[in-house]
């Protein structure tokens, strides 16, 4: 089953002005259980795409199928039960007075009985490593911890599709590492969950099965991380870059050393030794 199938999507914030189309005939699909990273310069349409997928915005033209159902007015409520999103700003999505309340919010909306709720909250707090913080207020948490709570809240809804829209952009390196480690763990433990990540950190994109590069509202390139990052010049042309571990090898290759950016650090250093 395809988890997501997006067909010929067009979107503009100002419909009257043709040149301001944010998405221009964008299509992509992904299988259930796949993890995809979206990268692209600021203003390329990545976040707009995420908002369209959860129906916070409506497309001008084109179709979105989630879990084989078309996203329309009469299916949106059903589909939203299966799709979760984590946004960029940790402070804008913490609504509870405590960690416990925040995770409970979605469960309460689904009228889960109180007795069951306690167990569910504990389970997902453990999942994200926040079980000792259940009674803490948001003010005493770091950005990374708040994002972990947001993820716990989303996971407790058992989403089939999880969207992370620059969920690490406002975090410090420690917070970002926490979220990256958690994403890895989620992938290995929930093999059926489809994870879409939007990021400006090329290191994060390396962790996904597939990368889709968005530029000017279109799919500019797609492939495995190794495939996409083998096109250093094309990426540079649109304002992107290689992750560090590939970049230094690429630069040495350009300088004439027999090195490829797909080599491990050890392999590359070994070659330099001779």
């Amino acid at each position: 089953m395809k988890a997501i199938d997006v067909q010929h999507l067009w979107f503009s914030y100002h419909q009257e002005e043709e040149e301001k189309m944010i998405l221009q005939d964008l299509s992509f699909s992904c299988e259930q259980g796949e993890s995809i990273a979206f990268i692209g310069p600021n203003g390329s349409g990545k976040s707009t795409l995420m908002k369209l997928l959860v129906a916070l915005l409506e497309a001008d033209k084109g179709k979105i199928f989630l879990l084989d159902k078309e996203l329309k007015e009469d299916t949106v409520d059903f589909l939203r039960q299966h799709i979760g999103i984590v946004f960029q700003n940790p402070d804008n999505q913490f609504i509870g007075a405590t960690v416990r309340d925040d995770i409970a919010f979605g469960l309460e909306n689904r009228c889960i009985p109180h007795e069951e709720m306690e167990d569910i909250i504990l389970k997902y707090a453990k999942e994200v490593g926040m079980e000792t913080f259940l009674d803490k207020e948001p003010a005493s948490l770091s950005g990374g911890q708040k994002q972990r709570v947001a993820i716990a809240g989303v996971l407790s809804m058992h989403p089939k599709i999880l969207l992370m829209d620059e969920a690490t952009a406002m975090l410090d390196p420690k917070g970002r590492k926490e979220i990256m480690a958690l994403t890895k763990k989620m992938r290995s433990e929930n093999k059926d969950m489809t994870i879409l990540t939007v990021t400006h950190h090329m290191e994060e994109a390396l962790l996904s099965d597939r990368i889709i590069v968005i530029y000017q509202g279109k799919v500019y390139m797609e492939g495995t991380p190794d495939e996409v990052f083998s096109h250093a010049e094309e990426l540079k042309a649109i304002g992107l870059d290689l992750p560090f571990e590939k970049k230094w090898k690429e630069e040495l290759k350009k300088a004439g050393f027999p090195i490829e950016n797909t080599m491990t650090d050890e392999e590359a250093i070994e070659i330099l030794c001779h």
Binding site: P41, Q88, M170, H200, G239, D241
Partner: peptide
């Protein structure tokens, strides 16, 4: 530079 693309 937080939240900016690499070129920006």
């Amino acid at each position: 530079t937080a939240g900016l693309d690499p070129k920006g």
